[in-house]
């Protein structure tokens, strides 16, 4: 009987081809175009000879390629994280940051950047920021996980996340009020999020850790599908709800936390991309949505990063502004055209 879905499957395959092509295109775009002009032949030369010594070689290898890859990976992780949480909470307006992950990270970073805790460590500042964000994101996650064990309904957990967010925000704003002017600017810039300044070591970490987590998540797509009917149906079909709940939250937070700690809070991707993928692929089947989100999240974020970099060079716009500015109308128009309620 699967023959009946052939037309849908065909359309989905076409979409996969299209977005895979687009992702390659946008990565190339990000590598070639920038404030320093580099031609195709030069690029070819630099790549083939693995030239990192010359100025242009340095720019390509140590600035543009890491940044292009980071934006693709970051977008993919955020989108998948958002998808997981939307399925988990059975709520379309949920994104990875609704659970207070970004607020936790922001709080810790504000401690590091705005208070005198960093005295004597000024030269370690970028590393300290990443570490602080990491600690903040995962601390929030641990608190939420421990509460998740005790709370029955997903909605209650959602409210717990929101409240955590407000609490962190409150403390951050108090710190801002007392902060010195010079420190404030750095903090505000971090808060806007950016994919600049990624190290190869960070890219490697993202590849390995993120890859493992994504593979795990794909393995969870069967129970994720069952979860679309709600916890009671899922458990009646044989899903171990307790274990599954922990795994989902752990994976979602790990992905979102990793990106937040390295690139700062990047808004909107986690919320919007799953919707775009659902509409494009016309399905709720997580076997398709997970790879779809990885690709689509990658494209959208890397294109947004490109715009953020190039729109008003040499001024770089905050990535969150671009993601929201382009993402919101896209989601709105898709929704209105399809006349569906999600």
């Amino acid at each position: 009987m699967s023959l009946v879905n052939i037309e849908l499957k065909k359309k989905q395959m076409i979409w996969f081809f299209v977005i895979t092509f687009l992702i390659i295109l946008s990565v190339l775009l990000n590598i070639i175009i920038g404030s320093v002009h580099i031609s195709f032949s030069e690029l070819h030369q630099i790549i083939v000879s693995h030239d990192t010594a010359s100025t242009k070689g340095f720019i390509i290898w140590n600035i543009r390629i890491p940044r292009a890859l980071a934006s693709v990976l970051g977008g993919a992780f955020l989108a998948v994280s958002g998808l997981l949480l939307q399925v988990f909470f059975r709520n379309p307006i949920v994104g990875p940051f609704i659970l207070g992950i970004s607020s936790g990270a922001t709080l810790m970073v504000s401690f590091v950047m705005l208070t005198t805790l960093t005295m004597g460590f000024t030269f370690l500042s970028p590393f300290m920021t990443t570490l602080a964000a990491f600690v903040g994101a995962y601390a929030t996650m641990m608190i939420i996980l421990s509460i998740a064990n005790r709370v029955k309904s997903g909605i209650t957990l959602l409210i717990v996340g929101l409240m955590m967010g407000y609490l962190c925000h409150a403390i951050t704003s108090v710190l801002i009020a007392f902060a010195e002017k010079e420190k404030l600017k750095g903090f505000v810039l971090w808060q806007m999020g950016s994919f600049s300044g990624f190290q190869w070591s960070e890219i490697q970490l993202m590849f390995i850790a993120g890859g493992i987590i994504l593979a795990l998540i794909y393995g969870l797509s069967k129970p994720l599908n069952a979860f679309l009917l709600g916890e009671e149906y899922a458990s009646s079909m044989g899903v171990n709800i307790r274990l599954f709940r922990i795994l989902i939250l752990l994976c979602a937070c790990a992905l979102a936390g990793m990106i937040t700690s390295m690139a700062g809070p990047v808004a909107f991707i986690g919320l919007a991309v799953p919707h775009m993928v659902r509409l494009c692929f016309n399905t709720s089947d997580n076997h398709i949505l997970i790879p779809g989100c990885i690709l689509m999240g990658g494209i959208i974020t890397s294109l947004c990063d490109f715009i953020a970099r190039m729109a008003f060079t040499p001024v770089e716009l905050p990535i969150s502004a671009i993601t929201a500015f382009f993402g919101a109308p896209i989601v709105l128009s898709l929704l209105l055209k399809r006349r569906v309620t999600i």
């Binding site: 009946v4 059975r90 379309p92 009917l229 659902r278 709720s284 089947d285 309620t341």
Partner: peptide, 10 residues
Amino acid sequence: VSPPFFRVWD
């Protein structure tokens, strides 16, 4: 229960 984009068969 009515998750989006679900056909009867699925």
